[in-house]
């Protein structure tokens, strides 16, 4: 028995390394690759850049993660992001003070999330359908309200959240960090968090334990909508403008970051720590491809390939027992 145990040990990686998901290895490889190819890549300035660029995606990916933990899906987060930004900027243009206008943006996200939640929990629509509909509604309203063009706002309080700094840390990053902290508290320190895992892991069992599953599922979508609203306001603050197509496709990046981070659709497995790695990978990829100057059209294809490659790698290594 003893000898067998040790031979098995030597065959595979040390146990600590086994726990590092494949996405982290791919991330390191990418960083090394870009650093060798483009001198401008491996600099503090560029890493701050990546952090800013990744921040909004982080906020959105947090939302995607909690929704996927419940075995749901949110296809509307990109559209809600756009819509919330438009409402915030329009409110400022209408003369509302910046803090209130930004609040209006957040509330827009919250309301859209609430509608998603209602459709899923009580109208019993599959999340895929409900949020696909919401994608159309929020995306469409954004175009209508902005008259299909970018609209601008530059109140200092507002733009501070996009380009300001707290000491040396860029504000979007601060916002993402706060969002992460809040989500962490909700997920791991409140009963709501346990119910999120329960909804994905055993919804019927949770209901029989006396958990009000419908209300909490509603809560999940509300929270996700609020996060999308946060993302939308920060995004608009960075651009000093709201654009009716700025959020198109972001839901896919958010979902990809979640899956890359090891959260899966089975039984409520996963968590938000892995999502950081997923977001980092996508942010590094986008930035790196820009720095080495790959044409935009090619970028999408390359990013898609690498995302799928990383997920497949993770699955294969786990199946072979090399990773845990």
């Amino acid at each position: 028995m003893e000898t067998r145990a040790t031979t098995e040990q030597t065959k595979s990686l040390p146990s600590l390394l086994q726990r590092v998901p494949a996405v982290a290895w791919v991330l390191l490889a990418l960083i090394a690759f870009f650093a060798m190819l483009a001198p401008g890549f491996f600099t503090l300035g560029n890493f701050l850049n990546i952090a800013v660029q990744g921040s909004v995606l982080m906020v959105l990916a947090l939302a995607a993660t909690i929704v996927i933990l419940t075995q749901g899906i949110d296809l509307s987060s990109g559209a809600i992001l756009t819509f919330s930004g438009i409402i915030a900027v329009l409110s400022m243009q209408a003369g509302l003070p910046a803090p209130l206008a930004m609040l209006a943006g957040l509330l827009t996200g919250l309301a859209c999330g609430a509608l998603n939640g209602f459709l899923v929990s009580w109208a019993l629509l599959p999340p895929f359908i409900a949020t696909l509909g919401m994608q159309g509604v929020a995306g469409g309203l954004a175009v209508v309200l902005s008259r299909a063009g970018a609209i601008y706002a530059d109140a200092p309080f507002f733009t501070f959240f996009g380009s300001g700094r707290l000491l040396i840390i860029p504000m979007p990053f601060v916002v993402a960090a706060v969002a992460y902290l809040c989500t962490w508290v909700v997920l791991y320190q409140t009963p709501f968090g346990s119910y999120i895992f329960a909804l994905g892991g055993n919804e019927a069992g949770a209901a029989l334990s006396g958990v009000r599953t419908k209300s909490w599922k509603f809560g999940v979508y509300v929270f996700a909508g609020l996060l999308a609203g946060v993302g939308g306001v920060v995004m608009a603050a960075r651009l000093r403008a709201a654009d009716p197509i700025v959020g198109v496709g972001w839901e896919f990046d958010a979902i990809a970051a979640t899956i890359l981070g090891g959260t899966s659709f089975e039984e409520g497995r996963g968590g938000i720590a892995g999502t950081i790695a997923g977001v980092a990978l996508i942010a590094v990829l986008r930035n790196g491809l820009n720095v080495i100057g790959l044409a935009t059209a090619w970028q999408a294809a390359v990013i898609g390939t690498i995302i799928i490659g990383a997920i497949v790698l993770d699955v294969l290594l786990k199946r072979k027992g090399i990773l845990k």
């Binding site: 346990s194 895992f197 329960a198 994905g200 892991g201 055993n202 019927a204 069992g205 949770a206 029989l208 334990s209 039984e267 409520g268 497995r269 996963g270």
Partner: peptide, 10 residues
Amino acid sequence: YQEYNLVPFL
């Protein structure tokens, strides 16, 4: 219950 009623990842 006869059915499994625990939440696997808690």
